[in-house]
Design a protein around this nucleic acid. Structure first.
Length: 191
DNA sequence: CGCCCGATGTGCT
DNA sequence: GCACATCGGGCGT
């Protein structure tokens, strides 16, 4: 299992499992802050400390793609938690989401920002924006429906002391069309 | 900082 | 066929 560090039987870092993703989406979105988005490319492992996430939840959420029902594109959001939902916006940018909640309930967390860190945990590059993030980590359509809990190619590991850092809540980005839902403070950012 | 607009897959008509 | 989109880079203020 890649990336797991054990010290005197204490698990310091671990791959997030399906149970983690099966929770209430705003809570999962907040808990993902400070976790590490891991990506393996040609045998090299890259890690990004997640700094910004956004919650999309249920058919009643007009900003959520599932509000328009289950389609070929959105069906993965109705599936099992812990899968990746990857789609294209504006014909240019790939968006990486983690599917959440119980199977059958459509919801996901959009990963909007991360800090690429080296082995010394120093910031190498800021991937501040969902499109920049997928470009920086070479994530594209092939990862749609990817099992993020398997610990291969693309997965997420629990963070350390991130809960001590303050979380800023704001309305979601780019969803002005979503009527009353656009005001919901479901964008979460680490300060 | 704000505005503009490319570039194209998706879903509806 | 066509309107619209979970954006980002570039340029002007």
């Amino acid at each position: 299992m890649p990336g797991i560090i054990y010290l005197s039987q204490i698990k310091l870092s671990s791959i997030l499992n399906q149970e983690f993703f099966s929770g209430y989406t705003p809570k999962v979105a907040k808990n993902l802050l400070g976790c590490f988005l891991m990506r393996e490319v040609d045998g090299k492992i890259y890690k990004g400390l997640i700094t910004e996430t956004e919650c999309y939840r249920g058919r009643h959420d007009l900003a959520c793609h599932a509000a328009k029902g289950k389609t070929e594109r959105t069906k993965v959001m109705f599936g099992e938690p812990g899968r990746a939902y990857v789609y294209l916006v504006y014909g240019v940018h790939w968006m990486l989401n983690a599917v959440t909640e119980a199977e059958g309930y459509p919801a996901a967390v959009l990963i909007r920002g991360a800090e690429l860190r080296d082995a010394q945990n120093e910031i190498v590059k800021k991937l501040d924006g969902p499109g920049k993030l997928t470009r920086g980590l070479k994530i594209g359509r092939s990862f749609n429906e990817w099992d993020l809990t398997a610990g291969e190619k693309l997965w997420i590991e629990g963070g350390g002391d991130f809960k001590k850092r303050k979380i800023i809540k704001k309305p979601r980005v780019g969803v002005d069309y979503a009527r009353h839902c656009k005001n919901w403070k479901w964008n979460f950012r680490l300060r």
